[in-house]
Amino acid sequence: MTTITTRTVEYAADGLTMTGHLALPAGAGRRPGVLIGPEGMGPSDVERRRADALAELGYTALAFDLHGGRYLADPEEMLARCMPLLADPDRMRRIGLAALDVLRTEPRTDPDRIAAIGYGTGGAIALELGRAGVDLRAIGTVNATTTGRPGEAARIRCPVWAGVGSQDPIMPPDRRDAFTAEMQAAGVDWRLTLYGGALHAFHHPPVDHPTVPGVGYHPRHARRAWRDVVDLLAECLPVTENPGA
């Protein structure tokens, strides 16, 4: 295992002071970067560990914040904040762009080689960055088959992969169908992976606080979804050190 370094970074977004987790690979040269968006509760050890795992693979990785350093364990509070956010594409883009700026300006990051992945609300933000025309090498989402404003998916400039549980009541078949129709009509290079029997947030280990109905951990599919994310990055954003950096 390579030696990585991590640090907490603060930055402004959505009228808040956000707290992100930045993980850097060993070495000194520039590496491709990955932005990681969390579930609606906000970043937890799950996203931070994924940032660390990507750094071990040679990426710079930033797990970004949604709620000003808070983790919203109360489902009602989380929904009260996230539902208006998910209904406001411009606000989602501002949150994503603020985090992207942090990752891009990190000296170890190659600013021209960045991907965005995300879970739930964080995945919706990753998709909105694509619909805003941000130059990304890949977009990967889990539990986020969300659609955007008409016509804006045509601005997506990279492959899109989405993973969702077949029994996810929050992302049911009609929402999945709308998402794939949007991607297809826009000419996006898209893939959808359906994980049989999985609920919403199937990738997230059990938490010690109440969750909304329809949420459940599926360890086998969680491992598969992570491999699918890593494969997407390996295909679209292979790790190559920039010796001139």
Rank of each mutant, 00 (worst) to 15 (best):
T3F: 01
I4Q: 00
A12R: 15
A13P: 10
G15W: 12
T19L: 13
G20R: 03
G20P: 09
A23H: 02
P25Y: 00
A28N: 11
R30C: 13
R30W: 12
R30Y: 11
G33Y: 04
G33T: 06
M41T: 04
M41P: 06
D45F: 03
R48V: 00
R48K: 06
L57P: 03
G58H: 04
Y59E: 03
T60F: 12
T60W: 13
A63F: 05
A63Y: 05
G68Q: 10
G68P: 14
G69E: 11
R70W: 08
D74V: 07
P75C: 00
L79G: 10
A80W: 11
M83Q: 13
A87P: 15
R93Q: 13
R94Q: 14
I95D: 05
G96T: 06
A99N: 11
A99R: 06
T105K: 14
D110Q: 07
P111D: 04
Y119A: 00
G123A: 02
I125W: 07
L129N: 03
G133S: 12
V134M: 08
L136E: 03
A138N: 06
I139P: 13
I139L: 08
G140R: 00
A144H: 03
T146E: 03
T147G: 07
G151Y: 13
E152M: 14
E152D: 15
E152P: 12
A154N: 08
A154S: 14
I156P: 09
C158D: 05
V160P: 14
V160W: 06
A162F: 02
V164H: 01
Q167D: 09
D168G: 05
D168Y: 07
I170V: 11
R176M: 10
F179A: 09
T180A: 04
T180L: 10
E182M: 13
Q184F: 05
A185C: 07
V188E: 03
L194F: 05
L194S: 06
Y195L: 02
G196K: 10
G197E: 00
A198Q: 02
H204Y: 09
D208R: 10
H209S: 06
P210G: 04
P210H: 05
T211I: 05
V212H: 02
P213D: 01
P213M: 00
G216Y: 13
R220C: 01
H221C: 03
A222Q: 06
A222N: 09
R223H: 14
R223G: 13
R224L: 08
D228Q: 10
D228F: 12
L233I: 01
E235D: 15
N242S: 15
N242R: 15
P243A: 09
P243Q: 12
